[in-house]
Design a binder for these strands. Structure first.
Length: 324
DNA sequence: CCAGTGCCCTGCTCGC
DNA sequence: TGCGAGCAGGGCACTG
């Protein structure tokens, strides 16, 4: 499943190859991935034909292409979504859902492939943000005016931190309620800590709440909690500031490391990351390690069901809070 | 407004 | 070899 670092890798790939291209010949092969486009498939197609891509932006796991029509093509990869740039004569993927022809680029077409269809595409309106802009990594890349096919960025290069002007402080309507994400340079840690202290809920539930901080999924939540040595049910309002700062820093670090790894496989027209095999090489400390030894103390990692999903933690390093 | 629950989807794996 | 159960989980509708 693509997590935030994978989505960022996809964003960089799309930004490099799609800015300046014009969309034509849109083909929707399955209605479900377009279900969030409320005006229907015909309207979806009509709004994309002939528009030019001006930028590729991300917040959390939402990704969008800004269009010269003033709207945006918003994408969420869900659990199994992929955005691929491929030669038009390449055989269709088994789960190809939407095909978008591109003019003025490298002769490739954009394909949305999604087995489980939790994700999807929609053409949406942009509104002014109340928090100063899309933020996240990307925004308007510093080399946005270079046409598609620009030279590959140097390997090992750090995240390209986006800049945005007042003019670009627009965000797709469905993303407007999503908080800045963990890798956003403009994330206000003090504000976030204050909001966490006001919540009466468990720490993991708060980390997964996209209106507080976005981009943290089940895997990275467990990894961050393991690093911070905190149990997932620790009540947020009882955590002190140093502890809150620690868990947020750990969440950011785990994602930065994953992005650094995900970025190494990014070159040429390869804009997708295979999430499944990616986990294996990522050196996880908690997630998926039930019964295996904790990398700190050797205690067996436990798995518990929480919020209809699994939580992995070390019962010694991350003791359950009293009274829970 | 806030906290918490359940559902959407498909395909793979496991046990019998 | 068949087959059902369990599992994966982000986002959102919905309830209290």
């Amino acid at each position: 499943m693509p997590e935030l670092p994978e989505v960022e890798v996809v964003r960089r790939g799309l930004a490099r190859w799609m800015i300046g291209t014009t969309i034509d010949q849109v083909e929707v092969l399955h209605p479900r991935p377009v279900r969030r486009h409320e005006a229907g498939i015909d309207d979806f197609v009509a709004r994309l034909n002939g528009v030019t891509v001006t930028d590729v932006v991300r917040r959390g796991k939402f990704l969008w292409l800004t269009l010269d029509s003033g709207e945006a093509l918003m994408a969420h990869l869900g659990m199994s979504g992929q955005l691929l740039l491929e030669a038009p004569d390449a055989p269709d993927e088994k789960h190809l859902r939407v095909r978008l022809g591109l003019q003025g680029g490298t002769g490739r077409e954009l394909r949305f492939v999604d087995q489980r269809m939790f994700g999807g595409l929609a053409v949406v309106e942009m509104i002014k943000t109340t928090d100063g802009g899309p933020g996240g990594l990307g925004g308007v890349p510093d080399d946005a005016e270079i046409p598609p096919g620009r030279p590959e960025p140097a390997r090992g290069e750090g995240p390209v931190e986006g800049e945005y002007s007042a003019e670009e402080a627009l965000i797709p309507v469905p993303v407007a309620h999503i908080a800045r994400d963990a890798l956003d340079p403009a994330l206000d840690v003090d504000l976030l800590a204050a909001r966490l202290k006001r919540r009466e809920t468990g720490l993991k539930r708060a980390l997964l709440d996209q209106t507080l901080i976005s981009g943290i999924g089940n895997i990275y939540a467990d990894e961050a909690l393991w690093r911070a040595r905190l149990h997932y049910e620790r009540p947020t309002h009882k955590l002190n500031r140093p502890t809150l700062n620690r868990i947020l820093a750990d969440a950011q670090n785990v994602m930065r490391e994953a992005l650094a790894q995900g970025g190494t496989s990014f070159d040429s027209l390869y804009v997708d990351v295979n999430g499944q095999s990616g986990y294996f090489e990522r050196g996880l400390d908690a997630y998926g390690r039930e019964g295996e030894a904790c990398h700190r103390c050797g205690t067996q990692i436990r798995r518990e069901t929480f919020m209809n999903r699994s939580s992995f933690f070390c019962p010694k390093c991350q003791p359950k809070p009293r009274g829970s």
